[in-house]
Design a protein around this nucleic acid. Structure first.
Length: 194
DNA sequence: ATGACGATTGAG
DNA sequence: TCAATCGTCATA
């Protein structure tokens, strides 16, 4: 399997995830507007680059499951495993446009003043949606534990915005970050915003 | 056993 | 620009 193959496969899944809706166990929901693909063994930025460990095991499992990772000693990040089984590939969900349950989101994120910022960033959205290590490994397709990704009929953007991934020290060369054009709920650095 | 480093965020 | 904060993993 070539690096190009993994890049293309994960990129397809990542782009297809745009405009789908992530729903929490208690009905909070947001439209996925920004994602990043991670390619496993061929990708130095991937948590699975150095092989399987206790904490990243979910990424080597079946696609459609949620991989949740604790980072910076205080934040959680949420991924959708993209397969194939054993590949260690996945899609990091980086931003949601809040749709339902905003009252609960505001309640758990009291310091966020603008609704636009509730799910703008990978750690912000996990807190707003009530996602933590407890959900690591759950099936997002079967929705056996409440969390799921649903399709309300809105197609993925025909021309998603592509660019380098954020917050990584290696693997910055590939354009594996994808977002919905013009969406105000997409995250980014101050210079990239405006 | 230990140290370096993170798929970030919020404050100054 | 920089501190907060601690689990994980490579190295010894």
């Amino acid at each position: 399997m070539s690096r190009a193959f993994f890049a293309r496969a994960a990129t397809v899944v990542a782009q297809q995830l745009l405009n789908k809706i992530l729903v929490s166990a208690d009905g909070r929901a947001g439209r996925i507007v920004e994602v990043e693909a991670y390619l496993g063994a061929v990708d130095p930025a991937s948590h699975t680059f150095r092989g399987r460990t206790l904490s990243n095991a979910v990424m080597f499992g079946p696609p459609g499951h949620m991989y949740v990772r604790f980072t910076y000693g205080m934040h959680w990040c949420c991924n959708c495993v993209s397969g194939p089984v054993g590949g260690g590939c996945g899609v990091l969900i980086r931003a949601l446009e809040p749709l339902h349950g905003l009252e609960q989101m505001r309640a758990v994120r009291p310091r966020i003043t603008r609704d636009r910022d509730l799910c703008r960033g990978p750690a912000r959205l996990t807190e707003a949606m009530g996602i933590s290590g407890i959900q690591n490994g759950i099936d997002l397709v079967g929705a056996s534990e409440g969390f799921t990704i649903v399709d309300d009929g809105m197609a993925p953007p025909r021309n998603p915005v592509g660019g380098p991934r954020i917050g990584i020290s290696q693997g910055k060369d590939l354009p594996l970050r994808w977002s919905v054009p013009g969406n105000r709920h997409v995250s980014g650095t101050a210079s990239q915003q405006h």
